[in-house]
Simulated scan of single mutants.
Amino acid sequence: MEITATVGLSNKADLSLAYTPGVAEVCEAIAADPALTRHYTWVPNTVAIVTDGTAVLGLGDIGPAAAMPVMEGKAVLFKQFGGVDGIPICLATTDVEEIIETVVRLAPSFGGINLEDISAPRCFEIEDRLKERLDIPVFHDDQHGTAVVTLAALTNALTLTHGRPESTRVVISGAGAAGVAIAKILLEAGVQDVVVTDRKGVVSSDRHDLTPSKKALAELTADRSGRSGTLADAFAGADVYVGVSGGTVPEEVVATMADDAIIFAMANPNPEVHPDVAHRHARVVATGRSDFPNQINNVLAFPGIFRGAFDVHASAITEGMKVAAAQALAELVGDDLTEEMVIPSPFDPRVGPAVAAAVAAAARRDGVARA
């Protein structure tokens, strides 16, 4: 990564414009009208990529210094696939209050905040409270990027199996950041029977060990359908399995799913259900890996989402904008839809522009666009 200027600086005249005295005129204009920041600074095209290093990839709590390479990689993806400038910020604190206050104080330098690799359940509170305090997009990619791409892939998979969202049974293993967001976006998209499991089984209100975030999740999911019990209990007759937890699901459990099942086993590097096993019992199989077909990859979502939000100077990223992003991704597959291709490639040049356009239009519909 490097930072480069967008204009030349080769002589005395250039220097007088780039810095003193010429820059003072811009400063005075912004002081008189802060909205001019959107036109004369890097702010409207720059996202802060913020982490505390507590949930990095599959590596866990490795701290802020070791998290920097991932944040740099994220910045490269933002630029390559969305034309968005990203600045990695690794914070030397895991305290919720300190993280929130730090980001609030940094916010004037950025057009949006991308939260990254912050462990659950702290990530939920951090995101929610930053949304309340800031008038720029705040997006936790581990939650919402994963959810958007999952919904897109599932939309196309259900087309192949002739399934309808309202009659589809979904089991999600993993009640962390990604599992919670996937459950919420599927409900938003019309799926009515969603069950989330953790290490102790179905997250339902008849359990007495639930955190506040899991209690709220239970009310949205298992409590509506009256389901409880173990992961195996949830699997029996299910149409869709979404894995964002790690571990291994025994084949005899997988075999109890409904006909024409859909399996998205997204743990890296080892999927919860190996594709060889999944293909024996499912019609459509996806993973989080690039060496198998149908990779559920966040890079399909977050660059275009921020590009679209920045293009209309959105004050937030709404549920409608996320669903619109998923729909745009699903539609790109078009006539190429097969069991081996339910989601486009990250290198499809249509992806970023299509997601950005859908997100910008949704921002206008949802009333958060300012341009």
Results as ranks from 00 to 15, higher is better:
D33A: 14
L36R: 03
R38F: 14
R38D: 14
H39L: 11
Y40W: 04
W42Q: 09
V43M: 06
V43E: 09
N45G: 13
T46L: 05
V47Q: 00
T51G: 07
G53L: 10
T54W: 00
A55H: 02
L59D: 00
D61Y: 07
A65K: 05
A65R: 06
P69V: 08
V70R: 04
M71T: 01
E72M: 15
E72G: 15
G73W: 13
K74E: 08
K74D: 11
K74M: 10
L77Y: 07
F78R: 10
K79R: 00
G82E: 05
G83E: 15
V84N: 04
D85G: 08
G86N: 03
I87L: 01
I89W: 04
I89N: 12
C90Q: 02
L91M: 08
A92N: 10
T93S: 08
D95Y: 04
E97S: 06
E101D: 14
V104N: 12
R105P: 14
P108E: 01
S109M: 05
S109H: 02
S109N: 00
G112P: 04
L115I: 15
I118E: 04
E125T: 09
I126C: 14
D128T: 10
L130G: 11
L130Q: 07
E132W: 12
R133H: 06
L134P: 11
L134E: 04
V138S: 07
H140N: 07
H144L: 04
G145N: 05
G145T: 02
A152V: 15
